[in-house]
């Protein structure tokens, strides 16, 4: 059991059924797995389906959305078959999630202590006294000074960084196997962002959790993720280890993303851009979903959507440029 993946997602499809018989294929055939102690990052722009992937794993998709196909295995258990009642036991217990804006995830009318104690009593069936002691211990673990006092404070009395620390304390309170972090530091300043990301690494190593990190920041991916999925239009377009992906970037979309980032270390007069905007999920171009914005588009690309192909060991790309292997790669750089 120890060596198998904590989470396995196989051919997950989450569609939204809109008016006029339109179907938004927000997540379309996604597969990946995460080992204990491993961080897998999903990168993509808004509308790429990265958050919907996370919510599908938590089984938090509401109408008009529906998981139409695929498997979600948590420690080999088929949680995609679980009833809503069974899922309630999984959420917060085996899978924990932290969001971008901690203020909206914390209840403003209860004290911090109350909110952590509630989780422990509900999920761990602890007594009030035990839960209170454990809560203080957790707050200290995530680096909150004067933990005893903070227990009695309300969310609005704390800064954004502190609130995110509290969210992490709540997330780890039930020793989850999987932690899903959806843009956990996007709302924070850079110096605080570094503190929070380091804390997440520390907690991951301490509890051997699997972490699914959703972000738009490729810098964070480079420093904190082991493995990366690049999503575009509800599909994975490139997938590799973080090092491989950044050193040996293949997909034109990933390349475009990297070129459009201003780099602090070198100076370019003009940034590279990807023309156009992300197409809406109910209105993808036929063929490759990136074809409408791709600088290397070929006739074939507008006719059919390429498969995700393994072009080198553990490096997958969804692009016709690499159909015949990677020998003529340089022509397209």
């Amino acid at each position: 059991m120890k060596n198998g993946p904590v989470l396995e997602v196989n051919q997950l499809k989450t569609y939204f059924y809109l008016r006029d018989n339109k179907v938004a294929k927000a997540v379309d055939n996604i597969s990946f797995s995460i080992l204990p102690g491993e961080t897998v990052a999903i990168v993509g722009e808004s509308g790429s389906g990265k958050s919907i992937t996370a919510l599908s794993i938590m089984r938090l998709i509401n109408k008009p959305g529906r998981i139409v196909d695929g498997e979600i295995l948590l420690d080999k258990e088929e949680i995609h078959r679980f009833s809503p009642k069974q899922m309630m036991k999984i959420r917060g217990n085996d899978i924990a999630m932290i969001f971008q804006e901690p203020m909206t995830s914390l209840n403003p009318v209860f004290t911090i202590g109350n909110q952590i104690i509630e989780i422990l009593r509900k999920h761990k069936k602890m007594s009030k006294g035990d839960a209170s002691n454990r809560a203080i211990q957790l707050l200290k673990m995530v680096g909150i000074p004067r933990a005893e006092e903070v227990m009695k404070e309300y969310p609005h009395q704390l800064s954004g960084g502190m609130r995110q620390r509290i969210m992490i304390a709540m997330a780890i309170s039930c020793d989850p196997k999987l932690l899903i972090a959806d843009e956990p530091t996007t709302a924070l300043d850079v110096t605080i962002q570094a503190q929070i990301l380091d804390l997440m690494v520390e907690m991951k190593e301490r509890f051997q959790m699997a972490v699914l990190l959703i972000t738009h920041d490729i810098g964070i991916v480079s420093e904190y993720a082991d493995h990366v999925l690049v999503m575009y239009g509800g599909q994975i377009v490139e997938q590799a280890s973080a090092k491989e992906l950044l050193q040996n970037t293949k997909h034109p979309y990933t390349k475009g993303l990297l070129e459009s980032l201003p780099n602090i270390d070198d100076d370019v007069e003009r940034l590279g851009t990807i023309k156009g905007t992300v197409p809406s999920a109910s209105d993808f171009p036929t063929g490759c979903r990136f074809s409408s914005r791709c600088p290397n588009v070929m006739e074939k690309c507008t006719q059919s959507n390429p498969d995700l192909m393994e072009i080198e060991k553990d490096h997958f790309v969804r692009c016709y440029l690499y159909e015949g292997g990677i020998k003529n790669d340089n022509e397209y750089v």
Binding site: T191, I192, Q193, A194, D217, L246, T249, L261, N263
Partner: peptide, 25 residues
């Protein structure tokens, strides 16, 4: 030094050392 940077050098050049700040504004 707090900004996460993209490391796409294939050689293992040492990173700039991060200066970590403690506490909040």
């Amino acid at each position: 030094t707090s900004i996460p940077v993209i490391d796409n050098n294939s050689d293992a050049t040492p990173r700039r050392t991060k200066i970590k700040l403690t506490g909040d504004l």
